[in-house]
Design a binder for these strands. Sequence first.
DNA 1: GATTAGGTTTACGTTAACGTAAAGTAGACC
DNA 2: GGTCTACTTTACGTTAACGTAAACCTAATC
Lengths: 149, 149
Amino acid sequence: MPDAPHSIATPPQEGSRSRRTYTIGELARLFEITPRTIRFYEQEGLLEPERRGQTRVYHDKDRVRLKLTLRGKRLGFSLVEIREVIQLYDHAPDGDERQLRRMLDILADKRAAMQQQLEDIRVLQRELDDVEARCQESLQALTRQRAKG
Amino acid sequence: MPDAPHSIATPPQEGSRSRRTYTIGELARLFEITPRTIRFYEQEGLLEPERRGQTRVYHDKDRVRLKLTLRGKRLGFSLVEIREVIQLYDHAPDGDERQLRRMLDILADKRAAMQQQLEDIRVLQRELDDVEARCQESLQALTRQRAKG
DNA sequence: GATTAGGTTTACGTTAACGTAAAGTAGACC
DNA sequence: GGTCTACTTTACGTTAACGTAAACCTAATC
Protein backbone atom coordinates (compact mmCIF):
# COMPACT_ATOMS: atom_id res chain seq x y z
CA MET A 1 0.00 0.00 0.00
CA PRO A 2 2.14 2.91 -1.24
CA ASP A 3 0.98 5.92 0.68
CA ALA A 4 1.19 9.55 -0.43
CA PRO A 5 2.59 8.90 -3.92
CA HIS A 6 4.62 11.86 -5.21
CA SER A 7 4.50 13.90 -2.07
CA ILE A 8 1.92 16.40 -3.16
CA ALA A 9 0.37 15.80 0.20
CA THR A 10 2.54 17.48 2.75
CA PRO A 11 3.64 15.09 5.48
CA PRO A 12 1.38 14.60 8.53
CA GLN A 13 2.77 17.63 10.37
CA GLU A 14 1.55 16.44 13.74
CA GLY A 15 2.25 19.75 15.42
CA SER A 16 -0.01 22.20 13.63
CA ARG A 17 -3.27 20.31 13.63
CA SER A 18 -5.72 20.89 10.81
CA ARG A 19 -3.07 22.16 8.41
CA ARG A 20 -2.68 19.05 6.32
CA THR A 21 -3.81 18.48 2.76
CA TYR A 22 -5.28 15.46 1.01
CA THR A 23 -5.01 13.90 -2.40
CA ILE A 24 -8.20 12.82 -4.03
CA GLY A 25 -7.34 9.19 -3.34
CA GLU A 26 -6.80 9.80 0.34
CA LEU A 27 -10.12 11.53 0.69
CA ALA A 28 -11.79 8.74 -1.24
CA ARG A 29 -10.40 6.08 1.08
CA LEU A 30 -11.23 8.19 4.10
CA PHE A 31 -14.93 8.27 3.24
CA GLU A 32 -15.09 4.99 1.32
CA ILE A 33 -16.18 6.55 -1.93
CA THR A 34 -14.50 6.74 -5.35
CA PRO A 35 -12.43 9.59 -6.76
CA ARG A 36 -15.02 9.85 -9.51
CA THR A 37 -17.63 10.75 -6.92
CA ILE A 38 -15.42 13.47 -5.49
CA ARG A 39 -14.78 14.97 -8.91
CA PHE A 40 -18.48 14.83 -9.61
CA TYR A 41 -19.25 16.71 -6.42
CA GLU A 42 -16.78 19.38 -7.48
CA GLN A 43 -18.47 19.63 -10.85
CA GLU A 44 -21.77 20.14 -9.05
CA GLY A 45 -20.29 22.98 -7.03
CA LEU A 46 -20.00 21.18 -3.70
CA LEU A 47 -16.21 21.28 -3.53
CA GLU A 48 -13.60 23.77 -4.69
CA PRO A 49 -10.18 22.20 -4.19
CA GLU A 50 -6.98 24.06 -4.79
CA ARG A 51 -4.98 23.24 -7.90
CA ARG A 52 -1.29 22.54 -7.81
CA GLY A 53 -0.33 22.16 -11.44
CA GLN A 54 -3.13 20.04 -12.74
CA THR A 55 -3.66 17.98 -9.62
CA ARG A 56 -6.30 18.78 -7.04
CA VAL A 57 -5.24 19.52 -3.50
CA TYR A 58 -7.86 19.20 -0.79
CA HIS A 59 -7.77 20.99 2.56
CA ASP A 60 -9.66 20.44 5.76
CA LYS A 61 -12.34 22.77 4.55
CA ASP A 62 -13.03 20.40 1.66
CA ARG A 63 -13.03 17.41 3.97
CA VAL A 64 -15.64 19.09 6.14
CA ARG A 65 -17.76 19.90 3.13
CA LEU A 66 -17.51 16.35 1.91
CA LYS A 67 -18.57 15.07 5.30
CA LEU A 68 -21.56 17.40 5.25
CA THR A 69 -22.41 16.25 1.76
CA LEU A 70 -22.40 12.58 2.66
CA ARG A 71 -24.46 13.27 5.74
CA GLY A 72 -26.99 15.06 3.59
CA LYS A 73 -27.06 12.14 1.21
CA ARG A 74 -27.77 9.69 4.00
CA LEU A 75 -30.74 11.87 4.84
CA GLY A 76 -32.03 11.70 1.30
CA PHE A 77 -31.20 15.25 0.28
CA SER A 78 -30.33 15.88 -3.35
CA LEU A 79 -26.95 17.34 -4.25
CA VAL A 80 -28.68 20.58 -5.23
CA GLU A 81 -30.28 20.84 -1.80
CA ILE A 82 -26.99 20.08 -0.14
CA ARG A 83 -25.32 22.77 -2.18
CA GLU A 84 -27.95 25.19 -0.94
CA VAL A 85 -27.12 24.32 2.64
CA ILE A 86 -23.40 24.66 1.99
CA GLN A 87 -23.89 28.05 0.44
CA LEU A 88 -26.00 29.06 3.41
CA TYR A 89 -23.21 27.92 5.63
CA ASP A 90 -20.55 29.83 3.70
CA HIS A 91 -22.29 33.06 2.80
CA ALA A 92 -24.66 33.44 5.73
CA PRO A 93 -23.65 36.90 6.96
CA ASP A 94 -23.32 38.78 3.68
CA GLY A 95 -26.10 39.88 1.40
CA ASP A 96 -28.98 42.30 1.70
CA GLU A 97 -32.08 41.96 3.81
CA ARG A 98 -34.10 40.23 1.11
CA GLN A 99 -31.37 37.64 0.73
CA LEU A 100 -31.14 37.09 4.46
CA ARG A 101 -34.89 36.64 4.79
CA ARG A 102 -34.84 34.19 1.92
CA MET A 103 -32.13 32.24 3.72
CA LEU A 104 -34.19 32.11 6.87
CA ASP A 105 -37.10 30.79 4.80
CA ILE A 106 -34.98 28.06 3.29
CA LEU A 107 -33.65 27.22 6.73
CA ALA A 108 -37.20 26.91 8.04
CA ASP A 109 -37.97 24.53 5.18
CA LYS A 110 -35.00 22.30 5.88
CA ARG A 111 -35.84 22.35 9.54
CA ALA A 112 -39.41 21.26 8.81
CA ALA A 113 -38.18 18.47 6.57
CA MET A 114 -35.90 17.19 9.31
CA GLN A 115 -38.64 17.42 11.89
CA GLN A 116 -40.77 15.28 9.58
CA GLN A 117 -37.90 12.84 9.29
CA LEU A 118 -37.60 12.57 13.04
CA GLU A 119 -41.27 11.69 13.24
CA ASP A 120 -40.92 9.23 10.38
CA ILE A 121 -38.04 7.52 12.10
CA ARG A 122 -39.94 7.21 15.34
CA VAL A 123 -42.88 5.60 13.59
CA LEU A 124 -40.71 3.26 11.58
CA GLN A 125 -38.75 2.23 14.65
CA ARG A 126 -41.95 1.26 16.40
CA GLU A 127 -43.00 -0.76 13.38
CA LEU A 128 -39.65 -2.52 13.30
CA ASP A 129 -40.04 -3.22 17.01
CA ASP A 130 -43.32 -4.87 16.19
CA VAL A 131 -41.92 -7.01 13.41
CA GLU A 132 -38.98 -8.01 15.54
CA ALA A 133 -41.20 -9.04 18.41
CA ARG A 134 -43.26 -11.26 16.13
CA CYS A 135 -40.07 -12.63 14.68
CA GLN A 136 -38.58 -13.48 18.05
CA GLU A 137 -41.82 -15.07 19.11
CA SER A 138 -42.04 -17.48 16.23
CA LEU A 139 -38.36 -18.23 16.66
CA GLN A 140 -38.97 -19.23 20.26
CA ALA A 141 -41.98 -21.24 19.18
CA LEU A 142 -39.71 -23.17 16.84
CA THR A 143 -37.17 -23.70 19.59
CA ARG A 144 -39.82 -25.01 21.98
CA GLN A 145 -41.06 -27.34 19.28
CA ARG A 146 -37.57 -28.72 18.89
CA ALA A 147 -37.17 -29.16 22.65
CA LYS A 148 -40.38 -31.15 22.86
CA GLY A 149 -39.79 -33.28 19.73
CA MET B 1 -65.18 18.38 -8.50
CA PRO B 2 -66.98 15.14 -9.51
CA ASP B 3 -66.24 12.69 -6.78
CA ALA B 4 -66.31 8.90 -7.02
CA PRO B 5 -67.05 8.74 -10.76
CA HIS B 6 -68.78 5.49 -11.71
CA SER B 7 -69.38 4.31 -8.23
CA ILE B 8 -66.76 1.61 -8.16
CA ALA B 9 -65.77 3.07 -4.86
CA THR B 10 -68.42 2.08 -2.38
CA PRO B 11 -69.92 5.11 -0.64
CA PRO B 12 -68.29 6.39 2.59
CA GLN B 13 -70.07 3.85 4.80
CA GLU B 14 -69.48 5.80 7.98
CA GLY B 15 -70.62 2.96 10.21
CA SER B 16 -68.14 0.19 9.47
CA ARG B 17 -64.88 2.12 9.65
CA SER B 18 -61.96 0.90 7.60
CA ARG B 19 -64.12 -0.99 5.10
CA ARG B 20 -64.05 1.49 2.27
CA THR B 21 -62.21 1.25 -1.01
CA TYR B 22 -60.34 3.75 -3.11
CA THR B 23 -59.88 4.43 -6.78
CA ILE B 24 -56.40 5.15 -7.95
CA GLY B 25 -57.28 8.82 -8.35
CA GLU B 26 -58.59 9.12 -4.82
CA LEU B 27 -55.47 7.58 -3.42
CA ALA B 28 -53.34 9.85 -5.55
CA ARG B 29 -55.09 12.98 -4.31
CA LEU B 30 -54.94 11.70 -0.76
CA PHE B 31 -51.14 11.49 -0.82
CA GLU B 32 -50.51 14.20 -3.40
CA ILE B 33 -48.83 11.92 -5.89
CA THR B 34 -49.81 10.85 -9.42
CA PRO B 35 -51.63 7.68 -10.47
CA ARG B 36 -48.56 6.86 -12.51
CA THR B 37 -46.53 6.66 -9.32
CA ILE B 38 -49.06 4.33 -7.74
CA ARG B 39 -49.04 2.01 -10.74
CA PHE B 40 -45.28 2.08 -10.71
CA TYR B 41 -45.20 1.04 -7.08
CA GLU B 42 -47.47 -1.85 -7.91
CA GLN B 43 -45.16 -2.87 -10.74
CA GLU B 44 -42.31 -2.85 -8.24
CA GLY B 45 -44.22 -5.15 -5.92
CA LEU B 46 -45.12 -2.62 -3.26
CA LEU B 47 -48.87 -2.75 -3.81
CA GLU B 48 -51.26 -5.51 -4.83
CA PRO B 49 -54.67 -3.94 -5.41
CA GLU B 50 -57.76 -5.96 -6.18
CA ARG B 51 -59.07 -5.97 -9.73
CA ARG B 52 -62.68 -5.36 -10.57
CA GLY B 53 -62.89 -5.89 -14.28
CA GLN B 54 -59.83 -4.10 -15.48
CA THR B 55 -59.85 -1.31 -12.90
CA ARG B 56 -57.83 -1.39 -9.75
CA VAL B 57 -59.60 -1.28 -6.40
CA TYR B 58 -57.56 -0.27 -3.39
CA HIS B 59 -58.36 -1.18 0.20
CA ASP B 60 -57.12 0.19 3.48
CA LYS B 61 -54.30 -2.30 3.44
CA ASP B 62 -53.02 -0.70 0.26
CA ARG B 63 -53.39 2.76 1.71
CA VAL B 64 -51.30 1.74 4.70
CA ARG B 65 -48.64 0.25 2.47
CA LEU B 66 -48.55 3.40 0.40
CA LYS B 67 -48.16 5.49 3.51
CA LEU B 68 -45.28 3.29 4.63
CA THR B 69 -43.72 3.58 1.20
CA LEU B 70 -43.82 7.36 1.17
CA ARG B 71 -42.43 7.48 4.66
CA GLY B 72 -39.58 5.28 3.56
CA LYS B 73 -38.93 7.53 0.60
CA ARG B 74 -38.77 10.60 2.79
CA LEU B 75 -36.07 8.80 4.73
CA GLY B 76 -34.08 8.12 1.59
CA PHE B 77 -34.78 4.41 1.30
CA SER B 78 -34.94 2.90 -2.15
CA LEU B 79 -38.09 1.17 -3.32
CA VAL B 80 -36.29 -2.16 -3.11
CA GLU B 81 -35.40 -1.55 0.52
CA ILE B 82 -38.95 -0.48 1.26
CA ARG B 83 -40.23 -3.63 -0.35
CA GLU B 84 -37.95 -5.60 1.93
CA VAL B 85 -39.47 -3.91 4.95
CA ILE B 86 -42.99 -4.50 3.70
CA GLN B 87 -42.26 -8.14 3.15
CA LEU B 88 -40.82 -8.34 6.62
CA TYR B 89 -43.96 -6.77 7.89
CA ASP B 90 -46.23 -9.17 6.04
CA HIS B 91 -44.39 -12.46 6.35
CA ALA B 92 -42.69 -12.07 9.68
CA PRO B 93 -44.04 -15.11 11.51
CA ASP B 94 -43.75 -17.75 8.80
CA GLY B 95 -40.60 -19.30 7.49
CA ASP B 96 -37.93 -21.53 8.96
CA GLU B 97 -35.28 -20.61 11.48
CA ARG B 98 -32.73 -19.57 8.90
CA GLN B 99 -35.25 -17.19 7.34
CA LEU B 100 -36.20 -15.75 10.69
CA ARG B 101 -32.59 -15.17 11.64
CA ARG B 102 -31.99 -13.49 8.30
CA MET B 103 -34.96 -11.23 8.97
CA LEU B 104 -33.57 -10.27 12.35
CA ASP B 105 -30.29 -9.44 10.66
CA ILE B 106 -31.97 -7.19 8.12
CA LEU B 107 -33.95 -5.58 10.90
CA ALA B 108 -30.74 -4.85 12.76
CA ASP B 109 -29.34 -3.24 9.61
CA LYS B 110 -32.35 -0.98 9.12
CA ARG B 111 -32.23 -0.10 12.77
CA ALA B 112 -28.59 0.87 12.54
CA ALA B 113 -29.27 2.98 9.47
CA MET B 114 -32.01 4.83 11.29
CA GLN B 115 -29.83 5.34 14.33
CA GLN B 116 -27.25 6.87 12.03
CA GLN B 117 -29.94 9.10 10.57
CA LEU B 118 -30.97 10.27 14.01
CA GLU B 119 -27.39 11.28 14.70
CA ASP B 120 -27.12 12.94 11.29
CA ILE B 121 -30.24 14.95 11.93
CA ARG B 122 -29.00 16.09 15.31
CA VAL B 123 -25.73 17.30 13.83
CA LEU B 124 -27.42 19.02 10.91
CA GLN B 125 -29.90 20.72 13.18
CA ARG B 126 -27.09 22.17 15.22
CA GLU B 127 -25.42 23.42 12.08
CA LEU B 128 -28.63 25.01 10.91
CA ASP B 129 -28.96 26.63 14.31
CA ASP B 130 -25.54 28.10 13.80
CA VAL B 131 -26.30 29.45 10.34
CA GLU B 132 -29.59 30.88 11.53
CA ALA B 133 -27.95 32.64 14.42
CA ARG B 134 -25.42 34.27 12.12
CA CYS B 135 -28.23 35.18 9.76
CA GLN B 136 -30.34 36.79 12.45
CA GLU B 137 -27.33 38.67 13.71
CA SER B 138 -26.48 40.30 10.41
CA LEU B 139 -30.14 41.04 9.90
CA GLN B 140 -30.22 42.92 13.20
CA ALA B 141 -27.01 44.68 12.27
CA LEU B 142 -28.73 45.90 9.12
CA THR B 143 -31.75 47.05 11.11
CA ARG B 144 -29.56 48.96 13.55
CA GLN B 145 -27.76 50.57 10.65
CA ARG B 146 -31.06 51.74 9.27
CA ALA B 147 -32.18 53.09 12.63
CA LYS B 148 -29.01 55.10 12.93
CA GLY B 149 -28.92 56.42 9.36
C1' DG C 1 14.54 4.90 -19.65
C1' DA C 2 10.83 1.66 -18.91
C1' DT C 3 7.59 0.59 -15.41
C1' DT C 4 4.30 1.80 -12.03
C1' DA C 5 1.08 4.18 -9.04
C1' DG C 6 -1.09 7.69 -8.76
C1' DG C 7 -3.31 11.67 -10.86
C1' DT C 8 -6.06 14.12 -15.17
C1' DT C 9 -9.87 14.96 -18.97
C1' DT C 10 -13.49 13.42 -22.09
C1' DA C 11 -17.22 10.92 -23.08
C1' DC C 12 -20.43 7.47 -23.23
C1' DG C 13 -23.20 3.95 -20.24
C1' DT C 14 -26.34 2.76 -16.41
C1' DT C 15 -29.93 2.66 -12.87
C1' DA C 16 -33.84 4.32 -10.18
C1' DA C 17 -38.00 6.58 -10.20
C1' DC C 18 -40.92 8.26 -12.27
C1' DG C 19 -43.08 11.84 -16.47
C1' DT C 20 -45.48 12.10 -20.68
C1' DA C 21 -48.00 10.98 -24.60
C1' DA C 22 -50.97 8.00 -27.41
C1' DA C 23 -54.72 5.08 -27.96
C1' DG C 24 -58.27 2.41 -26.12
C1' DT C 25 -62.32 1.21 -22.55
C1' DA C 26 -66.29 1.98 -19.67
C1' DG C 27 -69.78 4.07 -16.79
C1' DA C 28 -72.50 8.68 -16.10
C1' DC C 29 -75.15 12.46 -17.85
C1' DC C 30 -77.63 15.27 -21.27
C1' DG D 1 -76.03 8.23 -28.87
C1' DG D 2 -72.55 11.59 -28.13
C1' DT D 3 -69.74 13.69 -24.66
C1' DC D 4 -67.39 13.70 -20.31
C1' DT D 5 -64.44 11.81 -16.88
C1' DA D 6 -61.71 8.65 -15.11
C1' DC D 7 -59.70 4.57 -15.70
C1' DT D 8 -56.47 1.22 -18.59
C1' DT D 9 -51.97 -0.42 -21.27
C1' DT D 10 -47.79 0.42 -23.91
C1' DA D 11 -43.88 2.65 -24.72
C1' DC D 12 -40.61 6.02 -25.05
C1' DG D 13 -38.37 10.20 -22.53
C1' DT D 14 -36.01 12.33 -18.59
C1' DT D 15 -33.17 13.41 -14.54
C1' DA D 16 -29.87 12.55 -10.81
C1' DA D 17 -25.87 10.44 -9.47
C1' DC D 18 -22.65 8.36 -10.46
C1' DG D 19 -19.76 3.93 -13.17
C1' DT D 20 -16.63 2.71 -16.66
C1' DA D 21 -13.38 3.05 -20.21
C1' DA D 22 -9.84 5.25 -23.01
C1' DA D 23 -6.01 8.11 -23.49
C1' DC D 24 -2.94 11.09 -21.44
C1' DC D 25 0.47 13.30 -17.76
C1' DT D 26 4.01 12.89 -14.14
C1' DA D 27 6.89 11.89 -10.25
C1' DA D 28 9.25 8.04 -8.10
C1' DT D 29 11.60 3.71 -8.53
C1' DC D 30 14.08 -0.05 -10.60
